[in-house]
């Protein structure tokens, strides 16, 4: 009972924060358009790259152009969802600890991580999400894949847990700010590894494949679940494992964050 009450309170709080933030964002619709455009451009050039490569080769390690477009598009979706909701971690890792702003999170009777996440959301993420959806649908049509209710449900589940992996990774890296003051570099580089899971993992050698699957499990945000929908892997070896990995990873990241909170010393005297 208590739990439900707590959840309700948090959801209400989220709504309030979101509406407030959206109001500030909507002041400038141009900003939104520019952010959207730049993400769109980024993804489209990636497709142009694939297209130019496929002018030269019939398939890449046995993957066709449309299969790669599917993987590529799929990769954008959890990334976009995460981008929308957890963008404030970037600011947290750059400024919040260094400038002692973390104090106020500790003073309020709400979970500090929740407060960090709700403070801002990033509409640019919608751009990534939409581009990803368009590419996935485009590839699905060309590959004439069967769409069932089951596959749609698994799709939704896998992108949610994919976004959770992103959140966990960002949280894990951003938390380093408690120890190094500014963990922006680490977060930036860790996050950018996501560029590499938009291609089939089979092209990399074993150590890299292992790293992207189990150490920095970004493979589970893109290629691994996508291969289930492309019919090259089973459900158990992809999405079920993804869920387990996501939960464990989040648990580790959250523990680390709590540990960091305890170590926090404010700035100033």
């Amino acid at each position: 009972m208590n739990m439900i009450k707590k959840c309700k309170r948090y959801i209400n709080l989220y709504k309030i924060f979101l509406v407030q933030y959206m109001k500030t964002q909507m002041q400038s619709k141009v900003d939104f358009a520019v952010g959207f455009f730049s993400f769109f451009l980024n993804q489209m050039l990636g497709i142009v790259f694939l297209y130019l490569i496929f002018e030269q080769i019939p398939d890449l390690n046995g993957w066709s152009f449309y299969q790669l477009v599917f993987i590529y598009g799929y990769a954008q979706i959890p990334r976009g969802i995460d981008h929308f909701f957890t963008n404030n971690l970037w600011i947290f890792t750059r400024k919040t600890v260094k400038e002692g702003l973390f104090d106020r999170y500790l003073l309020r009777p709400v979970n500090p991580l929740f407060q960090i996440l709700v403070e801002q959301c990033c509409p640019d993420g919608i751009g990534e999400l939409l581009v990803g959806m368009v590419l996935v649908i485009y590839a699905t049509v060309h590959l004439s894949m069967a769409i069932t209710i089951g596959s749609i449900i698994w799709f939704v589940i896998s992108i949610i847990f994919g976004a959770l992996i992103y959140l966990s990774l960002k949280l894990l890296l951003a938390t380093n700010a408690f120890f190094f003051m500014d963990a922006y570099q680490i977060l930036y580089l860790g996050y950018n590894l996501s560029d590499f899971v938009k291609y089939p993992l089979g092209i990399y050698n074993k150590p890299i494949r292992f790293t992207l699957s189990y150490i920095i499990p970004l493979g589970f945000t893109a290629f691994i679940p996508a291969s289930f929908f492309l019919g090259t892997s089973t459900l158990y070896s992809t999405i079920i494992v993804e869920i387990i990995v996501a939960v464990i990873f989040f648990f580790i990241a959250y523990r680390y964050f709590c540990f960091g909170c305890n170590k926090y010393e404010s700035a100033g005297n």
Partner: peptide, 11 residues
């Protein structure tokens, strides 16, 4: 000229 330079810079 713009307040949203980050987006432009990324593009």
């Amino acid at each position: 000229y713009t307040t949203y330079f980050f987006g432009f810079n990324m593009a």
